[in-house]
Structures are given as structure tokens and as C-alpha cells.
Design a protein around this nucleic acid. Structure first.
Lengths: 214, 214
DNA sequence: AGATTAGTGTCAGCCGCTGACAATTGACAA
DNA sequence: TTGTCAATTGTCAGCGGCTGACACTAATCT
């Protein structure tokens, strides 16, 4: 059983996340002040910074969990799966479970709209991409371990992860540019871009229509 | 013939770039204050911000030119080259010309060490990656035009560029992790990673040693 | 209940960055 | 040459993000 102190802390933390995300979505990130967030949750600004190292950090608090979950899922894939296959499988397996942890803190709709805010706010986009590169590093380690390789000598894990991350980003851009802001459409965008990895590297681009038009 | 006013401006701008880069390399980015840069160039802090929108901007002033040059080179490739081939050719063609524009403002050694500083400074790394994504967008437009495609309907240009950018980043990481901080080793890293794009996507990773070991 | 410890609020201050206004300096014509 | 105009710069005040120091409050342990 957790003590009162700990529960209180968790409540404060969740409130800071929820309130800040709502403000970001409503007024925009740059237009939201840390003081406003702190006031709305009724704590001091100083306390906010004891929970989150920066204003950016609170915006990515939930993505943290999503990413960790994905990494674990990759590590748990059977060892005989090819590397790229393992990544896609982990994606598939986690797809449904992703939303649950989020919904306990923030409505999914807010979370989805926050994704858009992140893509359209330069400072947040920058942080998101740096975070992505950190996730890449963790993935490289996991994959290299699976294949029994040393990532310092063999660049293949790093290259594969870079390609994978690139595709994920391309899918993210495509999704956030459209108007169907749902988990399903997100999933569809990812799968479509994944399927194009092979064809796109070939020399012949003539008359191969994308799936959206066929 | 340019007027005195314009020449003075150019001199100030170059000085700000040179001095700031040297300070970043010597003391680190976070440890360098805008006031210090301004003082060293003997202008007011306010003037610094009239030349550069942010402290980050001055750190990427030279990369701006490099990237624009690359984009132009891609656009100038013959139309019958396959997309990926065009990217690699543009890279090759520009490789030697890159350093010249830089050396006029900052010694190459400083520029190379700054690349390392960027990779190891979280806030700068974030900005670099956002900038990379903007470059990607421009490349997508160029490639789509070359192939006569609409990037909104056909995701293939975006996916290819994402893969290309991913490989470039993987190469950059690998290079900046090593101790040979020269243009040649940078070039070698890029080419090695490029050559791995195809193999890495295949299902068979067994016993294919990387080029560094063979 | 009293001592201990964790969590919070307050205050002062640094740094990045911006608007406003006045002072300076190069450009250009009378 | 001189006077006018426009561009560039410096100064000042102020906001927002963020941090260290210290006192205060409240949960935990004995």
C-alpha cells in the first residue's frame, strides 16, 4: 500500500500533465506560461520545475511511457525474427495497448491534438526529434544484442534503426497533415509507409501508384 | 561595388559567427553567453539579436549554406537519374566544394569540432534535427518535381528522403563518435552507411561483415 | 507526542530574447 | 560641403524559463 505522501505526489503530477496538455491544445504551447499551468493546478512555479525539468518535459511526459513500452516489446520478440520484422511486430502488438496508459491521465482526443501541436510548434518539434534520436540509440542497443553484434564495429543495426525511424517520421508527417486525427488513421499511415521502404529504394519509380489511389 | 555600410555589416556578421563558434568549441555552448559573444565582437547584445534570431541560429549559420548548396545540386542532376542515385551524385559532386565557403569565415578544424559540440549538446542536437526535417521537406519537393509526382498523393518521395536522411544521421553519429575528425573520414562514414541501405532491409543478417573489418 | 524527513512556497537572480526610443553613421542630393 | 534621409546601433525596461538558498509545512517513524 502506498502512503499518502506518494499518492499526493502522483495526483499533482497527473494534474500538471493534464492541465498543461489542455492549455497547450487550447492556446498553443508558446502562448502558455509555466505560471499559468502552476496557477491552474494551484502550486508554485518552483514546484512545477521540481516535477518537470522544463516546460518541454511536461509536454512529452506521456510519450515517454509509450516509447519505453515499444522498446520493451522489441526486446521481447522471439530471437529468430529478422530485425525489421521484429520492429514491425512490436509495433503491431503494442498498437492497441498504447492508448490505455494515456487515457488514465488525459483524454485520447487531447493527446492526439497535442501530437499536432508538437508537429507545428518548432521548439517542440525539435525536442521530439532529439527524443526520437535517443530512442533510436536504445533500439540500436536492443537490436545489436538480439543479433549478437557490437554496434561500434557493425553499423548495420544503426542504419536499420535510422531507416525505421525515418519511415516513422514520414508517416507522422503525413498523418498530422491530414484531417483524420484518429489512432486508426495513424496506424494506417505507418503501415502504408512501411510497405514502401523496399520499392522506394529501387531504381524504377515509373507508374507504381501509391496505395491511397489504387 | 558594394557600399561601406554593406561591407561593415558583412564583417560584423562574419565576426559574430567566427567568435561564437570559437567560444562554443572552447567553452561549450551552454557555458557561452550571448553577452560574451557580443562583448568579444564589441557590439551590444541587442545588435547580436538583430543579426541572428537566436543563440542557436548563429551556431547553424554555416550549415545553412551547405544545405542550400546540396539542395541546388540535387535539383541540377539530370532528369534520367533514379531518385536515390541523384541524391548520392549530388553528395559526391558537392563534397569538395563544401569546405570552401566555410573556410572563408572559420577554420575548417573549428567547424568540424563544432559539429561534435552540436552532437553532444542536447539543445543544439534538437535544433539540428528540426533543421534536418526542414531540409527533408525541401528535398521532397525537389524530388517530386523531378519525377512529376504530387507529394500529397504519393508518399514515395517523402519515404525515400526519410530513408536518406536517416542514413545521413546514422553516418553522422558514427563519425562524431570516432576520433578521426576530418572531412575524409566523414565522407567515408557516409559512403559506408549508404552502401548498407539495401542489405540491412533484407531478412538475412548472418555473417555479413561490415566493411570496416574486411 | 516529538523528532525526522520529504515536499512546498518565497525570494532573488541569471540568461535568452523583445519592444521602444534615442543617438549615431553612412548614403545621397542640393 | 552641407543638410536631409534612412539604416544601423546602443540603452533601457521588461517578460518568461529556470535555479539556488532558505524557511516553513506536513507526512512518517519511534
Amino acid at each position: 500500500m502506498t502512503g499518502l505522501r506518494e499518492r499526493k505526489k502522483q495526483r499533482t503530477r497527473d494534474s500538471l500533465i493534464r492541465v498543461s496538455h489542455e492549455l497547450f491544445v487550447d492556446k498553443g504551447y508558446d502562448e502558455t506560461t509555466v505560471d499559468e499551468i502552476a496557477d491552474a493546478v494551484d502550486v508554485s512555479q518552483r514546484t512545477f520545475f521540481r516535477y518537470f525539468a522544463s516546460k518541454e518535459a511536461v509536454a512529452f511526459a506521456l510519450q515517454d511511457e509509450v516509447e519505453s513500452q515499444f522498446i520493451d516489446a522489441v526486446a521481447d520478440r522471439p530471437a529468430d525474427e529478422a530485425p525489421l520484422r521484429a520492429l514491425r511486430s512490436a509495433l503491431d502488438a503494442n498498437w492497441s495497448r498504447i492508448g490505455d496508459a494515456i487515457q488514465e491521465v488525459v483524454p485520447i482526443s487531447v493527446h492526439m491534438r497535442l501530437s499536432q501541436v508538437i508537429e507545428t510548434t518548432p521548439s517542440l518539434l525539435a525536442v521530439q526529434m532529439r527524443r526520437a534520436s535517443e530512442t533510436e540509440d536504445r533500439l540500436v542497443t536492443v537490436l545489436a544484442t538480439r543479433e549478437g553484434l557490437d554496434p561500434r564495429e557493425d553499423p548495420r543495426p544503426r542504419v536499420l534503426v535510422a531507416l525505421f525511424a525515418g519511415v516513422m517520421r514520414a508517416a507522422g508527417r503525413q498523418w498530422s497533415a491530414g484531417d483524420d486525427i484518429t489512432v486508426e488513421s495513424q496506424r494506417r499511415a505507418v503501415e502504408q509507409c512501411m510497405d514502401l521502404m523496399g520499392p522506394v529504394l529501387s531504381d524504377d519509380w515509373s507508374a507504381r501508384p501509391s496505395r491511397t489511389e489504387s
